[in-house]
């Protein structure tokens, strides 16, 4: 019987978008049955338009920077956009997949994508903002597959 993987994706920045989609697509390639539960900021990763995912150097002292950059510079208007642009260039130049590609790979491989209904209500998201290949559910839905999974990760 196929092994099962259950993920919770709770973060919605460009950098943190990678772990759930990399792990899910790879597990699917290894014949795992995979489900991802998207909650809070993770819901952003299910939107039709992923082009506004951003990465911020603020509050992240481990982020490699081309030149040392004090916090008060990082908080200037436009710095987040610059950091995001640089990250996207780096991603492309190193042959790292885009989030769009990894998400498509997950969908193609039959990874189940579940959006947290409570978060949709909380943030007044519209269901039409999201891609079609998702289901909506709550914590009990998560445990329905997490309880019988071999690997469970919170990201």
């Amino acid at each position: 019987m196929a092994k099962k993987l259950a993920l919770i994706a709770s973060k919605g920045s460009l950098d943190w978008a990678y772990p759930p989609f990399i792990l899910a697509s790879t597990a699917a390639a290894l014949d795992y049955e995979v489900s991802i539960f998207f909650t809070f900021y993770g819901l952003t990763l299910l939107k039709k338009d992923l082009s506004d995912l951003k990465v911020s150097p603020l509050g992240n002292p481990a982020m490699p920077m081309p030149v040392p950059m004090p916090n008060f510079v990082q908080m200037l208007p436009g710095m987040e956009s610059i950091a995001t642009m640089m990250m996207k260039q780096k991603i492309a130049s190193k042959g790292v997949a885009s989030i769009e590609d990894l998400r498509s790979a997950c969908i193609e491989a039959g990874v189940k994508l579940i959006a947290c209904q409570m978060t949709v209500d909380l943030f007044d998201f519209k269901k039409t903002d999201f891609i079609d290949e998702i289901e909506f559910g709550g914590a009990a839905t998560f445990f329905e597959f997490a309880g019988e999974s071999d690997v469970n990760l919170f990201i």
């Binding site: 990399i22 697509s25 790879t26 390639a29 190193k94 042959g95 790292v96 997949a97 790979a105």
Partner: peptide, 29 residues
């Protein structure tokens, strides 16, 4: 010139396009 996990994903796709016992050659950097 592809990075993790793309070589594995391409490999999986490539294997799905050939018959059992056939051989797939993959190049990666």
């Amino acid at each position: 010139n592809l990075n993790c996990p793309l070589p594995i994903l391409r490999c999986k796709k490539g294997l799905s396009e050939i018959e059992p016992a056939k051989i797939l050659k993959i190049m990666a950097t």
